[in-house]
Design a protein around this nucleic acid. Structure first.
Lengths: 119, 119
DNA sequence: CTGCTTGTACTACTGTCGTAGTACAATCCG
DNA sequence: CGGATTGTACTACGACAGTAGTACAAGCAG
């Protein structure tokens, strides 16, 4: 998986799980680039993309911060829509492999049980 | 989506849903290439990949046929494994978006209900 | 054997993606 | 204002995926 995708996912995950909180500042583009041994542009692209998604806010000369927008109702709706799209793709793929919705449900439910056991 | 992927998916789907039955012959590499206005090699690659997956059988000078192997227990196990892998990827993606297994289950269950209504 | 049909191997072109390099622009702070 | 820090725009290059072209090999039918 490409660097930028890994980073995007990591940041989204950090915010989703509360490890990064609203208003908190992220590392500088350049700083993070150095830490990850990656080009600054790669980090910048990620920040920009996440800003377009509305979960970050950047201010020139200041830095990049976790936005509060992803808590608004509008954004939660969009988020829900993305889940639907993800499920669409998932169902399509599974369908091409000959699996039904029920097959997927069974599989997911067994995962859920496993998760519960690990708590 | 690339041509070869579309074709692969279409054939898998046709077999999974019974529109192509075991033993049935598929169009010739060249013939299908002409029909789809695609290079013969593209079709050949798809056939070869599906043969590696064990759901097609090809005989030079004769043609390509739907194999019976995908009905064997071994193959069904592999198939099951692929479902697990698909679900893994799915869960990972959803997790990065901040969704839990339960969110996914809810979504899928509502899909299932819709499907039932359409019957 | 000969010719035709089938799939296959090899090569090469083209576009796109991912990343990096460099130079620029906006903002803050003293 | 002026320097430092921040994000940004533009360019270019390497790698790879996808597709096509062409020539080859295996099998069948007469």
């Amino acid at each position: 998986m490409p660097l930028y995708a890994q980073l995007t996912r990591a940041i989204r995950f950090a915010i989703a799980t509360g490890r990064l909180r609203v208003g908190e500042q992220l590392p500088t583009v350049r700083q993070l680039a150095v830490d990850l041994r990656v080009n600054a542009n790669t980090v910048a692209k990620v920040y920009a993309e996440l800003e377009r998604s509305g979960i970050l806010e950047t201010r020139r000369g200041v830095g990049t911060f976790v936005s509060a927008r992803h808590l608004t109702p509008v954004h939660r709706d969009e988020h829900e829509k993305h889940l639907k799209e993800l499920v669409d793709r998932f169902l399509e793929e599974a369908g091409a492999m000959g699996f039904s919705v029920d097959d997927l449900l069974d599989q997911l439910q067994s995962r859920r049980k496993k998760e519960l056991r690990n708590v």
